[in-house]
Amino acid sequence: MATVTLTVNGKKVSGEVEDRTLLVQFLRENLNLTGTHVGCDTSQCGACVVHMDGKAIKSCTTLAVQAAGSAITTIEGLADGTQLHPVQAAFREHHGLQCGFCTPGMIMTAVDMINRHKANGSKLDEKTIRAELEGNICRCTGYHNIVRAIEAANAAMA
Protein backbone atom coordinates (compact mmCIF):
# COMPACT_ATOMS: atom_id res chain seq x y z
CA MET A 1 0.00 0.00 0.00
CA ALA A 2 1.06 3.54 -0.65
CA THR A 3 -0.26 6.95 0.17
CA VAL A 4 -0.47 8.98 -3.01
CA THR A 5 -0.80 12.72 -2.93
CA LEU A 6 -1.53 14.65 -6.08
CA THR A 7 -3.47 17.63 -7.32
CA VAL A 8 -6.72 16.78 -9.08
CA ASN A 9 -8.67 19.56 -10.77
CA GLY A 10 -6.81 22.12 -8.69
CA LYS A 11 -7.37 20.44 -5.31
CA LYS A 12 -4.77 18.55 -3.35
CA VAL A 13 -5.95 15.00 -2.66
CA SER A 14 -4.48 11.97 -0.92
CA GLY A 15 -5.49 8.34 -0.89
CA GLU A 16 -4.36 4.92 0.26
CA VAL A 17 -3.90 2.64 -2.73
CA GLU A 18 -2.19 -0.59 -3.64
CA ASP A 19 0.87 0.06 -5.81
CA ARG A 20 -0.87 -1.79 -8.65
CA THR A 21 -3.88 0.57 -8.63
CA LEU A 22 -4.38 2.27 -11.97
CA LEU A 23 -4.79 6.02 -12.05
CA VAL A 24 -8.26 5.61 -13.56
CA GLN A 25 -9.31 3.35 -10.67
CA PHE A 26 -8.02 5.89 -8.18
CA LEU A 27 -9.94 8.71 -9.87
CA ARG A 28 -13.17 6.75 -10.19
CA GLU A 29 -13.20 4.68 -7.00
CA ASN A 30 -11.29 6.77 -4.44
CA LEU A 31 -12.30 10.22 -5.65
CA ASN A 32 -15.68 9.32 -7.21
CA LEU A 33 -14.70 11.21 -10.36
CA THR A 34 -16.58 8.85 -12.66
CA GLY A 35 -16.46 11.11 -15.71
CA THR A 36 -13.22 9.40 -16.74
CA HIS A 37 -14.30 6.15 -18.36
CA VAL A 38 -12.79 2.71 -18.85
CA GLY A 39 -13.60 1.51 -22.34
CA CYS A 40 -11.18 -1.04 -23.71
CA ASP A 41 -8.80 -1.24 -20.73
CA THR A 42 -6.04 -2.07 -23.26
CA SER A 43 -4.74 1.45 -24.05
CA GLN A 44 -6.50 1.75 -27.38
CA CYS A 45 -9.86 3.50 -27.00
CA GLY A 46 -8.95 6.72 -25.17
CA ALA A 47 -12.10 6.92 -23.01
CA CYS A 48 -9.78 7.24 -19.99
CA VAL A 49 -7.73 10.21 -21.25
CA VAL A 50 -6.90 12.80 -18.58
CA HIS A 51 -4.19 15.47 -18.43
CA MET A 52 -1.12 14.91 -16.29
CA ASP A 53 0.92 18.08 -15.84
CA GLY A 54 -0.89 19.51 -18.85
CA LYS A 55 -0.41 16.57 -21.23
CA ALA A 56 -2.99 14.05 -22.38
CA ILE A 57 -2.30 10.55 -21.08
CA LYS A 58 -4.23 7.31 -20.77
CA SER A 59 -5.17 6.85 -17.11
CA CYS A 60 -5.78 3.11 -17.64
CA THR A 61 -2.12 2.75 -18.63
CA THR A 62 -0.66 4.68 -15.71
CA LEU A 63 -0.41 3.61 -12.09
CA ALA A 64 -1.73 5.99 -9.44
CA VAL A 65 1.70 5.85 -7.77
CA GLN A 66 3.35 6.92 -11.05
CA ALA A 67 1.12 10.01 -10.98
CA ALA A 68 1.96 10.92 -7.36
CA GLY A 69 3.04 14.55 -7.10
CA SER A 70 1.56 15.48 -10.46
CA ALA A 71 -1.33 17.75 -11.39
CA ILE A 72 -4.22 15.86 -12.98
CA THR A 73 -7.12 17.42 -14.85
CA THR A 74 -10.19 15.30 -15.56
CA ILE A 75 -13.34 16.11 -17.52
CA GLU A 76 -14.89 17.33 -14.25
CA GLY A 77 -12.20 20.01 -14.01
CA LEU A 78 -12.77 21.68 -17.38
CA ALA A 79 -15.90 23.77 -16.85
CA ASP A 80 -15.78 27.04 -14.96
CA GLY A 81 -18.76 26.60 -12.66
CA THR A 82 -21.79 26.40 -14.94
CA GLN A 83 -19.78 27.86 -17.84
CA LEU A 84 -18.78 25.00 -20.14
CA HIS A 85 -15.24 24.86 -21.49
CA PRO A 86 -15.22 25.97 -25.17
CA VAL A 87 -14.55 22.37 -26.27
CA GLN A 88 -17.47 21.07 -24.21
CA ALA A 89 -19.69 23.82 -25.62
CA ALA A 90 -18.60 22.96 -29.17
CA PHE A 91 -19.34 19.25 -28.68
CA ARG A 92 -22.87 20.20 -27.54
CA GLU A 93 -23.38 22.76 -30.31
CA HIS A 94 -22.15 20.43 -33.08
CA HIS A 95 -23.66 17.26 -31.64
CA GLY A 96 -20.22 15.68 -31.31
CA LEU A 97 -21.61 12.70 -29.42
CA GLN A 98 -24.32 10.11 -29.50
CA CYS A 99 -24.10 7.66 -26.61
CA GLY A 100 -21.48 9.84 -24.93
CA PHE A 101 -19.28 7.07 -23.56
CA CYS A 102 -16.14 8.16 -25.44
CA THR A 103 -16.90 11.87 -25.00
CA PRO A 104 -14.85 12.65 -21.85
CA GLY A 105 -11.75 11.16 -23.48
CA MET A 106 -12.51 12.85 -26.80
CA ILE A 107 -12.83 16.23 -25.08
CA MET A 108 -9.67 15.81 -23.00
CA THR A 109 -7.78 14.78 -26.15
CA ALA A 110 -9.25 17.72 -28.07
CA VAL A 111 -8.26 20.25 -25.40
CA ASP A 112 -4.69 18.88 -25.39
CA MET A 113 -4.59 18.89 -29.20
CA ILE A 114 -5.80 22.49 -29.50
CA ASN A 115 -3.46 23.75 -26.76
CA ARG A 116 -0.46 21.95 -28.24
CA HIS A 117 -1.00 23.26 -31.76
CA LYS A 118 -1.56 26.79 -30.44
CA ALA A 119 1.66 26.59 -28.40
CA ASN A 120 3.82 25.56 -31.35
CA GLY A 121 1.98 27.70 -33.89
CA SER A 122 1.01 24.83 -36.19
CA LYS A 123 -2.28 24.69 -38.04
CA LEU A 124 -4.98 22.33 -36.77
CA ASP A 125 -6.81 21.38 -39.96
CA GLU A 126 -9.28 18.55 -40.47
CA LYS A 127 -6.62 16.07 -41.58
CA THR A 128 -4.50 16.81 -38.51
CA ILE A 129 -7.50 16.51 -36.19
CA ARG A 130 -8.36 13.11 -37.64
CA ALA A 131 -4.76 11.93 -37.30
CA GLU A 132 -4.60 13.21 -33.72
CA LEU A 133 -7.75 11.25 -32.84
CA GLU A 134 -5.84 8.04 -33.57
CA GLY A 135 -6.03 7.03 -29.92
CA ASN A 136 -9.72 7.78 -29.33
CA ILE A 137 -12.37 5.40 -30.59
CA CYS A 138 -16.02 6.33 -31.10
CA ARG A 139 -18.45 3.61 -32.13
CA CYS A 140 -21.46 5.86 -32.79
CA THR A 141 -20.72 9.06 -34.63
CA GLY A 142 -18.40 8.17 -37.47
CA TYR A 143 -16.28 11.06 -36.09
CA HIS A 144 -17.77 13.65 -38.47
CA ASN A 145 -19.35 15.86 -35.81
CA ILE A 146 -16.48 15.28 -33.38
CA VAL A 147 -14.11 16.73 -35.98
CA ARG A 148 -16.49 19.64 -36.63
CA ALA A 149 -16.74 20.32 -32.91
CA ILE A 150 -12.95 20.38 -32.52
CA GLU A 151 -12.58 22.69 -35.54
CA ALA A 152 -15.18 25.05 -34.04
CA ALA A 153 -13.60 24.94 -30.58
CA ASN A 154 -10.18 25.61 -32.10
CA ALA A 155 -11.59 28.71 -33.81
CA ALA A 156 -13.40 29.81 -30.63
CA MET A 157 -10.20 29.47 -28.59
CA ALA A 158 -8.09 31.48 -31.05
Binding site: S43, G46, V49, M52, K55, A56, I57, K58, T61, T62, T109, D112, M113, R116, E132, E134, G135, N136
Partner: peptide, 9 residues
Protein backbone atom coordinates in the same frame (compact mmCIF):
# COMPACT_ATOMS: atom_id res chain seq x y z
CA UNK B 1 4.33 5.94 -32.75
CA UNK B 2 1.06 4.99 -31.05
CA UNK B 3 -1.16 8.01 -30.48
CA UNK B 4 -0.69 11.45 -28.85
CA UNK B 5 -1.37 10.20 -25.31
CA UNK B 6 1.04 7.28 -25.69
CA UNK B 7 3.67 9.62 -27.14
CA UNK B 8 3.44 11.83 -24.03
CA UNK B 9 4.55 8.90 -21.85
Amino acid sequence: IGDPAVRHM
